[in-house]
Every structure is written in C-alpha cells, then in structure tokens.
Nucleic acid binder design. Structure first.
Length: 675
DNA sequence: CACTCCGGGATTTTT
DNA sequence: TCCCGGAGTG
C-alpha cells in the first residue's frame, strides 16, 4: 500500500512517535499523505475509525477526502471516522455538551446576514459601512479568542471600545435566542474545554489521533482547539504550506506554524518537495519568486516533468486589449494542442476583473464557469424554508421566527411584531413565548391575535410531528400549509418562480434522502436533520451547465486546484500586489509577502504552461491610470521568461527594492529570535 | 416622501 | 457581476 509513495511521503505516513508537521509544497501530494495515513492508522496500527479525526477548512476538501478514504478502505467500514471541517467538528462537540454552556442541544446557527441584522438592531443604525466594520471586528475578536470584557480592555480608541460594547450585547442576544454564529462554533468549544476539563478529557479520550489539513490557514482559536484536543503528547499530523498562506486578512495566522515548534519541542518536521504537477520552468519561477519572502523553513520544489515551455509575460494596452489577447491566445492554443476548455484557467486578484474576460469569452462563444458566486444557502427561497426548520427545532430563535412569521405573509404585520418584540424584550423571553402570554394577548386586537396564534400553534403542531414522522412527509405538509409554491408565483416572474420552486424541491428532496440514511447510517428525523443543515454542503462543487469550460477564478479561490494552462492577468502594481496591501505594508510589514504568496499560488496552479499579462493603462475612478508592471514580474527567472509587448519592470530597480526588504526582514527575524 | 432607475466603482471568502 | 448612491418621478 505504501509503495506508491515517495520516501518523505512514506515517512510522513508512518511517523507516529510524536507530533508531526508536514510541510507540503504545492502539488506535492499532501492529500495523499493524509488519506494514506488514515488508512495506515486503521489497517496497520489498530486504530478504530471513530478514534481518528481529519480536519479541513472547506466542505469540499472534507468531501474529497471522505471519498478517497472510502475507496481505499473498501473492505473495512469507515463508520465513526470523522472527516469534517473545523466548524462541523465544533458543532458536534457543542451539540453534545451544550448544557454545560447553558445552551439547549437544539440551539440554532445564525448566518452572517442574521448577525448583521442583530447588529443593526443593537447599533440602531442602517449605516452598512459601520455595520460591516463592526461585524468584522467582532469576528476578528472571536477568531483571536478574545471575550467582550477583554475586548473592552484592549480597545485603544473610542470606536473600538464602542464596538466592544456592541460585541457584549450581541453575545447576550445570541444567548437569548439560543443561537450561535459561525465563529462561535470554534470559540465556544474552546471556552467549554477551558471551563470543564472533564469534558475535554472525554474528547481527548475519544479522539486518539488528529490530522489537520491546510494548517497554515488556522486562526488562533482553531489552533487553541487543536492544541487542547491533542493534549501534551501531541497525537497529530499537521499538513500545510507556509508559502500558500493567503488568508491572513481573515484571521489565519502563519505564526501558528512557528508556534507549533515552540509548543511542541518534540515536533518532527517532514518536507515534501517533489512536485507532481508542473514543469521545471514553472517551478523555477515559483521558487524564485517566493525566495523573496523570509522563510521559517527552507523549501524548494522540484519535478522531473521536463523543462517545459517558456513562461510568457505580455504587456497589453489596457484591460480590454488584455482580455482580447488572452482569449485569442487561449483559443489558438487550444486549437493547436487539441486540448479541452477545462484545461484552461484565467486567474485574477479581484472578482470584478472577470467582467471584461467574460465579455470576450461570450463574444467568442467559449464556455466558461466563474468560481465563487453565492452559496445555495444564501438563496432567499432556501433561507425561507430553513427559517421554518430552525424555528421548529428551536422556538427561541427570533430571527427565524421573524422570517417564518412574515414569509409568506400570513396576517402578521410590522405592528404586531413590534409589540411582540417590545413585550418579549421587556420580559426577557423569546418572541414565540411572548405570543402565548395572556398579558400580551390582551394588548392585541382580535384579528392580529388570531393570525399570530394560528402561526404559533401550527409551529407547535409540526414540532411534535417532526420528532415522529418521516422528514419527507413533514416537509411536504409544511410546504402545503404555508402555500409556498403559490407564494413564489405570486411574488416573482414565472421564470424566476419556477427555478426557485425547483431549488426548494431539490433541497427537500436531498434532505429527505439524507433522512433515509444514504450512507447506511441510522435514520434521521427532521429535527436531527435541521440541526446539521446549516453546515452541510449540497449542490456545492456541482458547476452549473457545461462540464467542459474554461475556469475563471480569483487567486484565492484557485488554491488547491490545478490546470494544464494558466493565464494570470492584471499583474500590475496596485492590483497584485494590491494597492491596499502596499499601503498597509508600509505601516506594518508583512502584507506584501502575502501578496507574493498569492502570486506563488497563481504560478503553481499551472501544469504545462503559464501566461502572465499586465496592462499599461487601466480605467479607474473615471480616469485612465498609467500602470506599472508588478514588482513580482522582475522576480521571475528571466531565462525562463519570454516578454511580449513592452518592457517589464526594470529588474535593477526591483532587485534593489527586494534587497532592501530582505534586510528589513532579516532584522525583523533577528529581533524575534532574541525576544 | 418614497421608490425606481441608471451609472460608476470594486481586494481577497469560508463556515 | 453586484452593490451603492444620486437623481428624477409619482
């Protein structure tokens, strides 16, 4: 089984004497190491599947890993094996230990638009900018494991102090709703384990071995959780690549990699440097660019896949010309090499950059898919339905109550809700509970009261059914009762209504299937299903329409993917590196390095050919702006590059800049080591 | 006073 | 593309 691995990979799989960090370069087979190690632990080392947890960041990664392990373990069961995202593992723990934190096990999970609305209430404002900022601030605090009290103490300016107060009220509100937000799914388990060592001991006993994917993306809170679960013996394998850390801006801290060496003095480090993806030239480019960043661990990718084509760097007049040139080149290349559309990717820094490209692709009838887009759960029709489910599971979930009570309209209007809200907050109870209070009922007109009670009583009725009857039946009853299909056709264009209704049916169909236990697990009723849906990935990864299409993607969203031929566009100062990062780097160095890693991620997506382009001019804020080629272009190995149309940056200038920066970095590292 | 329509502008995203 | 803000209309 292990003979298909190269020697460091094999070593990584077999190493069990202590904590292990696998530094896996791009395309070096890190997923293979994780999946093989899971199989090895079960088949060769006598671990039970339920004693192992593999943790990823995205549902997609978890699903892929699940599939691969499933195939390899055919004979033996994978029952009980945990392959989950940080968030769903956190959820699992919270559901089981909810009582210890004063939550009921059916607590709700709020999405970011719910929490946005709560903040709008707390701050009594509609200023979206301020709300977004506050939301971001609170999220950052949670990711750094900072409580409202600590946040208040830390706040150095008035604005942050105000935000800390909002944070506190926000947190109290969530508790009252018996709800948690996404960040809480990681933060609360850590709190739980700090306050209840016996609960921690229980989970440490249960999970005997941990494997963590994309370790460089962990934030402080996630690292804390890992450290707690693996205990002092450090029974874990962390796999990551510091050169691909591109999520610093959302709390991921590469520092966690260094911290690992400090926290676990016995930490073993294995590097995977053989790349199975790209040509020598592409790897030379990647290595040389990233060599400009300070390194904690030296790492150099190599491959035996041949020298390959020269890397092309083209200058375009402006973004329109660039788009045209890229699409032309792509089409010619495809014709010449008899490749498929899906062998090509066009990568860029910001979503909006896709616009011109899309235009060109449409003009030339080239099929394409754009990465990202809103998730299934963000669709209004799904949120409507989910709000009913959330309310059924947890009648204290006020955001769900408001949405369900008002969509479709059922005679419960704003005034009723306002009065209900006033009464509820005065008496510190949920909206649902308030509706049944005699004192409140006397305040309300007969008509309004009747409609309100109809709704609440129906929820009560369906709550009982949800526990007993099959999920499918209950859902059908629900949709019939609220007349959701009629509602859609009343409020939408027929076309839109049709797709929305189809989405609803897709969703319920899929939910019911889950309820019947498609992986031969025990049957689940609607309540149990409801408790997991907000974290389930569905229809995700299923690209709509054309399976053979050119991929358009941001550099961030392209991490983990590979393509035969890659076009990297808009490689200019101000875009890559992004203007904001350049500015931020002046105050607090480090941002440019993250931009460089972004460039590195882009380069290493390519297997056979790499085309880089930049614009000499670009429209911005109504004016035409003169653009400089990105400093990263000068960092490429010029022997492997062929330039088209105009000079790139003067290598000498950029070299000077690089040297200067390296000196700074060395000084910085030196200080760190001393301190 | 509120709603709609149009034009301009844009980091990066998951759960 | 999507979102926001300003102008123009009922």
């Amino acid at each position: 089984m292990l003979d298909t691995l190269n020697s460091p990979q094999r070593e990584a799989v077999k190493y069990l004497d202590g904590p292990l960090l696998v530094l896996a370069g791009a395309g070096s087979g890190k997923t293979r190491v994780i999946t093989q190690k899971i199989v090895y632990l079960i088949e060769k080392c006598g671990y039970l599947p339920k004693e192992i947890a593999a943790i990823t960041f995205t549902n997609k990664a978890a699903r892929e890993m699940q599939e691969r392990v499933g195939k390899m373990l055919e004979s033996k069961s994978t029952k009980g094996l945990t392959i989950a995202t940080f968030h769903s593992l956190g959820l699992q723990m919270l559901r089981q230990e909810a009582a210890l934190l004063g939550y009921k096990p059916q607590f709700s999970i709020l999405d970011s638009s719910d929490s946005f609305k709560i903040l709008a209430d707390v701050l009594a404002t509609t200023d979206k900018q301020l709300l977004r900022k506050t939301q971001w601030q609170i999220s950052s605090w949670k990711n750094a494991f900072i409580n409202p009290d600590q946040a208040k103490q830390l706040a150095d300016e008035e604005l942050t102090h105000a935000a800390a107060k909002v944070y506190q009220i926000y947190q109290q509100t969530l508790k009252a709703y018996q709800a948690v937000d996404f960040d809480d799914l990681i933060k609360l388990p850590v709190e739980l384990f700090e306050q209840h060592p016996e609960a921690l001991a229980k989970w440490q006993r249960k999970l005997k071995y941990l494997l963590i994917d994309e370790y460089q993306d962990t934030n402080a809170c996630q690292y804390k959780l890992v450290k707690m679960l693996t205990g002092i013996e450090g029974r874990f394998t962390a796999v990551g690549d510091d050169d691909q850390a591109i999520y610093g801006w959302r709390g991921a801290d590469v520092e966690n990699l260094r911290q690992l060496t400090e926290d676990f003095s016995r930490l073993k480090v294995i590097k995977l440097e053989q790349n199975y993806r790209s040509t020598v030239r592409i790897l030379r480019a990647a290595n040389q660019v990233i060599a400009n960043n300070p390194k904690l661990f030296e790492k150099k990718l190599w491959s035996d896949l041949g020298t390959g084509d020269l890397i092309q760097v083209s200058a375009a007049r402006d973004e329109e010309h660039e788009a045209e040139a890229v699409v032309m080149k792509l089409m010619a290349h495809k014709f010449e090499h008899r490749t498929k559309h899906l062998d090509y990717a066009i990568l860029y820094r910001g979503n909006y950059q896709a616009r011109v490209i899309e235009q060109q692709l449409r003009n030339h009838k080239v099929p394409y898919t754009v990465s990202g887009g809103q998730s299934f759960f963000d669709k209004a029709e799904i949120k409507d339905l989910v709000s009913y489910l959330r309310l059924i599971a947890n009648e204290d979930d006020d955001p769900a109550f408001i949405r369900a009570a008002t969509t479709p309209k059922k005679g419960i209007g704003n005034t009723t809700l306002e009065r209900l809200g006033e009464y509820a907050s005065l008496h510190k109870i949920s909206l649902f509970a308030a509706a049944f209070e005699g004192e409140f009922q006397r305040e309300l007109g007969n008509r309004q009261l009747e409609d309100l009670l109809n709704f609440c009583q129906y929820i009560n009725k369906i709550q009982e059914r949800a526990e007993r009857d099959p999920a499918g039946e209950v859902l059908t009853d629900l949709l019939n009762t609220i007349q959701y299909e009629v509602f859609l056709y009343d409020s939408e264009e027929p076309r839109a209504a049709e797709t929305k209704w189809k989405n609803v049916l897709d969703f319920t169909g899929w939910l019911t299937k889950k309820g019947e236990g498609d992986d031969a697990n025990e049957e689940r009723n609607l309540l149990q299903l409801t408790q997991m849906i907000s974290l389930m990935s569905m229809l995700e990864g299923r690209e709509n329409g054309e399976p053979d299409a050119v991929k358009l993607s941001t550099l961030h969203a392209a991490k983990g993917l590979e393509f035969g031929h890659v076009f990297l566009i808009g490689v200019e100062e101000g875009i890559l590196p992004h203007r904001e990062s350049v500015e931020a780097d002046k105050l607090k160095p480090g941002k440019i390095e993250e931009e460089r890693r972004l460039m590195y991620v882009g380069i290493t997506r390519a297997q056979k050919s790499l085309n880089i382009s930049w614009c000499k001019k670009r429209k911005r804020a109504g004016e035409t702006e003169i653009c400089e080629p990105s400093r990263f272009l000068a960092e490429l190995p010029q022997d492997d590059v062929r330039h088209f149309g105009g000079p790139a940056a003067d290598p000498a200038t950029s070299k000077e800049h690089g040297k200067e920066r390296m000196a700074q970095i060395r000084a910085m590292l030196g200080n760190q080591n001393k301190g």
